[in-house]
């Protein structure tokens, strides 16, 4: 039996008086492609932050790639993010004035790889997302869909076991959105576990598994 990529048990997150996430249990196996779906304020972002180890649960335990997150220091969590988790954000977060290849190469900046290695890997990753012809382009010279593909290339650079995509198509037109979703499916076919956070029911419905959230509770999709 393989260890699950993500395992939450009884995870709650409280911000002051607000219970943003209420006793969540979730297990994500290697190679899954799933949607976390729910209206705004349902706790999607909180779940993303906790699964991405950007925030810690108030109660409950979380395992990522076999590590007990609650037992790790902030330093160790940083290393875990560098090695095991890739992030894709709605707003792309690409540095202005930096060529695509260097943006992507920064995906491995904190892993101790040499710059030459990082750039070489970035070149491959850009080919992988279909932007082999856009290496030297600056973000503002790229379309929204291309920018998001650059961000995806950065996120999957070190082949992390887990890719977290937060509303990856939220800032894109429908055509670009489809391209990005198709890319995520390709990456999943190649073995990457992908969690897509979305409020878009159509996108959620197109993925093999949906985890539905409402008012901080997981209401369906607990098991695949």
């Amino acid at each position: 039996m393989t260890t699950p990529v993500v395992e939450l048990s009884g995870v709650s997150k409280r911000y002051g008086d607000v219970l943003a996430l209420d006793d969540a249990d979730l297990r994500i196996e290697r190679g899954e492609l799933l949607a976390v779906v729910g209206p705004s304020g349902s706790g999607k972002s909180t779940l993303l932050h906790i699964m991405g180890t950007l925030d810690r649960p108030t109660t409950g335990t979380l395992h990522i790639d076999g590590y007990d997150v609650g037992a790790l220091s902030d330093r160790e969590l940083s290393v875990l993010r560098a090695r095991a988790i890739g992030f894709v954000f709605q707003q792309f977060h690409l540095a202005r004035g930096v060529p695509a290849i260097d943006i992507v190469a920064d995906g491995l900046l904190y892993t101790g790889r040499s710059r030459a290695h990082r750039r070489q890997a970035a070149e491959q990753a850009l080919h992988r997302v279909g932007l082999g012809h856009r290496m030297k382009h600056l973000p503002h010279q790229l379309s929204g869909g291309e920018q998001q593909r650059v961000a995806i290339a950065r996120a999957v650079l070190g082949d992390p076991p887990l890719l977290m995509a937060d509303e990856p198509t939220g800032a894109l037109d429908s055509h670009s959105g489809e391209t990005v979703m198709a890319l995520l499916r390709d990456l999943n076919d190649a073995g990457t576990t992908i969690v897509v956070i979305t409020h878009d029911r159509d996108i959620a419905a197109s993925l093999p598994r949906q985890v539905r959230l409402k008012d901080g509770k997981i209401i369906s999709g607990v098991r695949a």
């Binding site: 991405g52 950007l54 902030d74 330093r75 940083s78 290393v79 875990l80 993010r81 560098a82 090695r83 988790i85 992030f87 954000f89 707003q91 977060h93 540095a95 920064d106 995906g107 900046l109 904190y110 892993t111 950065r154």
Partner: peptide
């Protein structure tokens, strides 16, 4: 701030 957030998500420690 968003750059800092991004770098933390890429695995930068507080020290870095």
């Amino acid at each position: 701030r968003s750059e800092i957030g991004l770098r933390r998500s890429l695995g930068a420690t507080r020290g870095q």
